[in-house]
């Protein structure tokens, strides 16, 4: 029984080691994600300037009424969902939801960059955190160039079963 106990102890130790290891990996992934987010911001900021260059804001001109900030925000987010998304990912965002008070949820059910990741694998999830930071930054940068300061985060939909379904949550901080 001694031997048995020992092996049990060892496997327990192994378990806590892998636990620690996994936590460390998540930490590293999050640091990398912060960096990726910053790169995404740079790219999004510049790219949205290029794409929006010749595009008048329709809510500024329609009906002669002054557009409310909420209308401008909605139009900017729609621009991200349609033009910006199709330039970058070759498809539009599948679903846009908003509470009309500065919170927007963009759902992409077949996100290009995650299509090839296996489902239900922890390492793939950690990798996906890093990959997703970039588009989060893209959105934040693009909106920031349109005069809207936001915080962007992302979630997996469908709980890891299908890695490529994800949502981007945009929260407007303030308009400048």
């Amino acid at each position: 029984t001694d031997v048995k106990d020992q092996s049990k102890g060892a496997s327990k130790q192994d378990e806590s080691m892998t636990q620690e290891k996994a936590e460390e990996l998540v930490m590293i992934a999050e640091n990398a994600a912060a960096k990726m987010e910053r790169m995404g911001y740079d790219v999004g900021y510049r790219l949205s300037e290029r794409l929006a260059q010749n595009k008048p804001m329709s809510s500024n001109t329609s009906g002669g009424k002054k557009a409310t900030p909420a209308m401008i925000q909605l139009e900017a987010v729609k621009f991200i969902c349609k033009e910006f998304w199709s330039e970058v990912f070759r498809k539009q965002v599948d679903k846009l939801q908003t509470n009309h008070r500065g919170v927007f949820v963009l759902k992409d059910l077949q996100f290009q960059w995650l299509k090839r990741l296996p489902a239900d694998v922890e390492m793939a999830r950690i990798m996906a955190i890093k990959i997703l930071a970039f588009p989060c930054g893209l959105i934040r940068g693009a909106l920031s160039n349109l005069g809207i300061n936001t915080v962007v985060s992302c979630d997996f939909l469908a709980d890891g079963k299908n890695m490529s379904a994800c949502s981007f949550n945009i929260k407007v901080k303030s308009t400048t």
Partner: peptide, 13 residues
């Protein structure tokens, strides 16, 4: 353009 800008931000980083 996305490609070029992303490479640029990689260099910056």
């Amino acid at each position: 353009e996305l490609f070029a800008l992303t490479y640029g931000s990689l260099i910056t980083e």
